[in-house]
Computed example of a mutant assay.
Amino acid sequence: MSKFKIIETPIKDLLIIETRIFKDERGFFMETYNQKEFEEIGLNIQFVQDNLSKSKKGVLRGLHFQIKHPQGKLIRVIKGGVYDVAVDLRLNSPTFGKWFGIELKEGDGLAFYIPEGFAHGFLTLEEETYFFYKCTDIYYAEYDNGVIWNDPEININWPIDKVENLTISEKDKKLPLLKEIVKVLKEEGN
């Protein structure tokens, strides 16, 4: 029996991965990643970088992506909770500009796989949230880009009512609209 199970989302290639958790009176154990077992369930993904961020409640990060060297991300929350969002930026996709969101919490056994070609962001729902993710490519600051979190065309239903104060970086407040990013994506041939 595999330790991992794929749950499909309404957007092709955007996946939730359910992980078996082994619990007893001492606590629990789970493998968060196993390349061989991922390949057995059809996920032949190579990761090259791991990242960990800590945020207080109400922090909204994103929506980020890299123009060149796009990153696929395998996301888990190891403490706290987030509302995690991916937006399809694949120009030839029937779901271009559509979003999917999922609440991830510590100990829930869920991971969210966001492939290359998506913008990504999250809102922390609990204090001291630790957000861990594996990436399929290295971070290159010169290719860093994004879409504004509240773009009316995308119309993400962020659960802002679950936080008292919303904190967004100055950089993220100035991100462009989706319609502006389309021009950049076309120029880069994405």
Rank of each mutant, 00 (worst) to 15 (best):
S2T: 14
K174F: 09
F112Y: 00
E106K: 04
I45A: 03
R61N: 03
G97L: 00
K162R: 10
K183V: 02
G109F: 07
E153A: 00
N44V: 11
L123Q: 05
F96M: 00
T124D: 03
Q71T: 06
P159Y: 08
E187F: 15
I160W: 09
I148C: 01
L89K: 01
D108C: 03
L52G: 01
L110T: 07
I7D: 11
G121Y: 01
Y133G: 06
Q35T: 12
N155M: 03
N92S: 10
E153L: 06
V87Y: 00
N165L: 11
V82S: 04
W149P: 11
R20H: 13
H69F: 10
N150I: 10
R61Y: 05
K68G: 07
F112E: 08
I154C: 03
H69M: 06
T9D: 13
P176C: 15
V59I: 08
N51D: 15
G80W: 10
I16C: 03
D108W: 05
F132L: 01
D161R: 15
S53I: 11
K68E: 11
V59K: 01
T32I: 01
D172I: 13
F4Q: 10
I168F: 14
T124P: 01
T124M: 04
K162V: 02
G42M: 10
V59H: 01
L166N: 00
R61E: 06
Q49R: 14
F29A: 09
L52W: 13
G72M: 10
L89H: 04
